[in-house]
């Protein structure tokens, strides 16, 4: 069950999506989300989903992974869907009961919204699937570098993020190990009342915290041993370069996003 966590899960590969400059991928992902919401019509959303599916196919990420990343947000989608359905205003109600009126406009809007959220999650997942966390933080640091001029500790934020991301799988592993060890001693973790379940977490949380602090200590020591002094004057082993392929990708993004956005003025805008 812990293994279902897909945040920051990297799916290594050797496609054009994988090898594209991470800065471009990051900006393009943000752009994609903006376009997804700005186009405001069914055709545009359909096109953006098509684009996303094509990119997934190019990156050779299995469909199973997309479904896995979408699974946890199903309750959120259901919730927003129902809210939209019940409260979206329209002209002639389709069904009326108690204080609620359901309009045809509400149905279309609810469906559109649900599809958008799915595409949003799938789109951002594509970024994390095809980009390793360290490369991604590199990209963020690079993009935010201008802020260091006004004394924002960009490098420090980046290193904190890198370490945090780096330790997610380690801590998940550790948690699983400790859970197994306590289960082997007869601990009951998934049955009983809420109070009992909370109490059952103590034998897991205490060893987990102790090991997290121990790891932090060891890591700090190891970094100091290798003369880590923070950001000033630090060079990088892998310098990000914006190559020819990246310009092609950039062009591709501008064109496709432009087309999707242009549908706004061709087809009727919903909501």
């Amino acid at each position: 069950m812990l293994r279902d966590i897909t945040i920051g899960q990297h799916f290594p590969g050797d496609s054009i999506v994988h090898n594209c400059d991470p800065r471009l991928k990051l900006v393009a992902t943000i752009g994609y989300v903006v376009v997804l919401y700005a186009c405001g019509n069914a055709v545009g959303v359909a096109l953006s989903i098509l684009l996303l599916l094509a990119l997934y196919a190019i990156a050779k990420v299995p469909v199973k992974l997309i479904l896995k990343s979408l699974k946890p947000i199903v309750p959120i989608i259901a919730f927003t869907g129902i809210i939209n359905l019940l409260f979206y205003p329209g002209e002639t109600p389709l069904v009326s009961f108690w204080i609620f009126n359901i309009y045809p406009e509400g149905i279309t809007f609810a469906v559109l919204m649900a599809v958008r959220i799915l595409a949003l999650i799938a789109g951002t997942s594509l970024l994390t699937y095809t980009t390793s966390p360290t490369v991604l933080t590199d990209a963020i640091e690079n993009l935010l570098r201008p802020l260091s001029k006004i004394h924002v500790p960009v490098h420090e934020f980046a290193i904190i993020m890198t370490i945090a991301l780096r330790f997610i799988p380690t801590l998940v592993d550790e948690t699983e190990k400790i859970m197994n060890a306590q289960k082997a001693r007869g601990a009951q973790l998934d049955t009983g009342k809420l109070g009992q379940r909370l109490k059952a977490l103590v034998p897991i949380l205490i060893p987990l915290f102790i090991s997290a602090f121990r790891r932090a200590d060891e890591l700090a020591m190891a970094m100091e041993c290798r003369c880590y002094r923070g950001g000033a004057g630090r060079t990088q082993l892998k310098v990000l370069k914006f190559g020819k392929n990246d310009f092609l990708c950039l062009g591709f993004c501008v064109v496709t996003f432009g087309i999707i956005l242009a549908t706004r003025w061709v087809f009727p805008v919903i909501g």
Partner: peptide, 14 residues
């Protein structure tokens, strides 16, 4: 689990 007692690697972390 009560029949088979399992001691993991580095059990002191539990």
């Amino acid at each position: 689990r009560f029949l088979v007692g399992l001691v993991f690697q580095y059990p002191e972390y539990q």
